[in-house]
Design a protein around this nucleic acid. Structure first.
Lengths: 229, 229
DNA sequence: AACTTGGTTGGAATGGCGTTCCAAAGTCGA
DNA sequence: TCGACTTTGGAACGCCATTCCAACCAAGTT
């Protein structure tokens, strides 16, 4: 399937040789510019000026391509670590970096939530966990705390991916504004009073701010519940 | 497309008439017993002893069927409200009921995260929001708090759906044990020390306990940050 | 320089999916 | 009984991921 180390020195490859990483790069380009639905074996083959068969020689499935693409972007995001002296600031910065990656590449959100035990999730969990170590969370709580933060990120990620899909299908409209209108329509003021009265916030709020507020709730809860000292 | 109120009194229907709700019920049965992948227009038509065309006369797409099925189960779960005197206990009970629904019907998790502005999500948001009202969270924070809780549930839901898919494909029931093994393999002890050292918890923990611990982190964070008094 | 070998290529074929089409059948007001 | 309208369900369409396989190459061997 490729990645044979011997080949690096032994056989000489053609200059235009297909490789797993070239395929993944082309996939990322398509996903970013034309969305999840635009990535098919045929469009990807066309972008690489080859046929579908050649691609499957290097990567065993479309899911493998997507997993590799997501892992690439997550790893890239995580490796930009600020490493301040303040571990609290560090973990907030990490979470915001993740948010920005998902905001810029919504398909990553869909991919992260599509398969369990994915490489990208390991990176995510590891990075969050190491920051919690720095925060000196009591040992037994670290796993729970890291899981909670990962799950929260995944929830936000899945909504971003869904919104991006919807926006592309329906056209350029503001997805959240449509939902807010729906929540204010019909008999909603009596059947769903809470949603009705908060719908305007859905349409107007800053999503980055909303995300970090949720992170803040979790971090406060974690430190209050599990700080040793 | 059906659901014409006039028809209820006017035209008389055949006893075995196809209806949207019969289709959704059949879909739920297939999803629960044979998994997401088993639900196709053809298998559903077969279960209803008809052809695919008849189904599309009542519901406009497969996504609409899935959305209706998910909304049905979420509504059913949410309507089992305990309504104790203690609002803190109520919201924990609600979250656990949601967890149990997703645990029993993992495909609901996939559906919730697949489309924005879904009916099931409105029910979820409304129910969580009303409980927060009872908790007397300060007004401006309620939207943020409800969103954070919903996002957390969605993250957990997506992981449950992914694990169920994987388990059905591989035939193995213990997906988490496989992932834990992966996290302990290779050079992980040096490259991913946190994941390596917590892998055993991944395989051994009680998932329901883990879920409610995350909820607890959020609720503590929310009350500490946003309680008015 | 020809021959062999085995990884690589890419176009064609396969099987299955969601969805649409449409002729036949059913139902009702007149 | 008739004509209009809904409902049915099997066949057909277009697209997808994936597999097949004959041709293609760049070494090693002679």
């Amino acid at each position: 399937m490729d990645e044979n180390p011997k080949r690096q020195q032994g056989r000489q490859r053609r200059l235009d040789a297909l490789t797993a990483s070239k395929i993944v790069d082309a996939a990322i380009t398509i996903l970013d510019s034309e969305g999840e639905e635009a990535l098919t074996a045929r469009t990807l083959a066309q972008a690489l000026a080859t046929g579908p068969g050649a691609i499957y020689h290097h990567l065993k499935s479309k899911q493998a391509i997507l997993a590799a693409a997501a892992a690439e972007l997550v790893t890239r995001a995580i490796s930009r670590k600020p490493r301040n002296s303040d571990p609290g600031a560090d973990i907030r910065a990490l979470m915001l970096t993740l948010f920005d990656t998902i905001d810029e590449h919504p398909w990553v959100g869909a991919q992260l939530t599509d398969q369990p035990g994915q490489p990208a999730l390991l990176e995510l969990f590891e990075s969050i966990g190491e920051h919690l170590d720095a925060l000196r969370i009591a040992r037994p709580s670290r796993f729970m705390a890291a899981s909670a933060l990962v799950n929260y990120v995944l929830g936000v990620a899945s909504q971003y991916a869904a919104a991006a899909r919807h926006a592309r299908q329906v056209g350029r409209t503001d997805v959240l504004a449509d939902i807010a209108d729906d929540w204010r329509g019909g008999q909603r003021s009596s059947t769903h009073p809470f949603a009705y009265s908060t719908a305007h916030e859905l349409a107007e709020h800053d999503e980055r701010q909303q995300f970090i507020t949720g992170v803040e709730f979790l971090l406060v809860g974690i430190t209050v519940t599990a700080q040793p000292s």
